[in-house]
Amino acid sequence: MKKLKIIDLKKAQSIATTRSIKLSENTLDQKERANGFLEEVGDMSLFIKQIFKETFSRNFEFKEFLRQCYEIGNKSLPLIIITGTIMGLVLTIQSRPAMAKFGAVTMLPGMVAVSIIREIGPIITALICAGKIGSGMGAELGSMKVTEQIDAMEVSATNPIRYLVVTRVLAATLMLPILVLFADAFGFLGSWIGVNIKGDVSLVLYIFQAFGSVDFLDFFPALIKTFLFGAVIGIVGCYKGFTAGRGTESVGKAANEAVVLSSLLIIIVDMIAVQITDMWL
């Protein structure tokens, strides 16, 4: 009996040791993950600080800024126009049966207008731009990092944050609200087409009905948040590109992470913006 007890004790000790090793390994893993997350937050904060510092420094790269505005604004426009039109069309067609149940089909333009201006226009445009612009920035800067082009710029006494990052972040911040305005306008056009599939409303009457339900307080907060969406896309895209690792694999990773993180942050910023708007207006 005594012998058995000793064996049991040894087994128990061995199990306990194994478990405690596993536990300590898990703890270390979690610690490393937490450290990694905090390091990323810290690095990004420093990156944003550098962007602010360089934005207000001398020798602003105006020509490169205009080129980025063209790249981001003009080249995204066809995609935004198509998406905006379809968004308005689909929203109208989907909402019509529900509105018809309450005999409120005449309110359809107003409801769609408020939806597009307040939420759907900004968020859909921002998410599309996160995919198109954010991934483009992540991949382009990531590739420049991997092939030492950013180092070459730094060595030739050109500040890469000022030349590459500030111009892109400002261009994205400025262009996104303009793209949202286009998305909204073509959303209305799509909605008008949707209304006319089963009805007969002139464009002028549609616009009167739509804007009759919208006031300045619907428009203004939505416009403000689109600037923030643009800044998020620019900052995250550039940060991921700038911090890409070595090798071509990291370029794809940077582009992918730029899209995922900026999309997530856009949703979070939108949620906060909606809460603030709801509290104050």
């Binding site: 030492e148 082009q149 070459a152 006494a157």
Partner: peptide
């Protein structure tokens, strides 16, 4: 840095 020329292993020409 203005007084230094640096030839990178990859050349590091700006692709765009």
């Amino acid at each position: 840095r203005k007084k230094i020329g640096f030839l990178f292993q990859s050349g590091a020409l700006y692709d765009s």
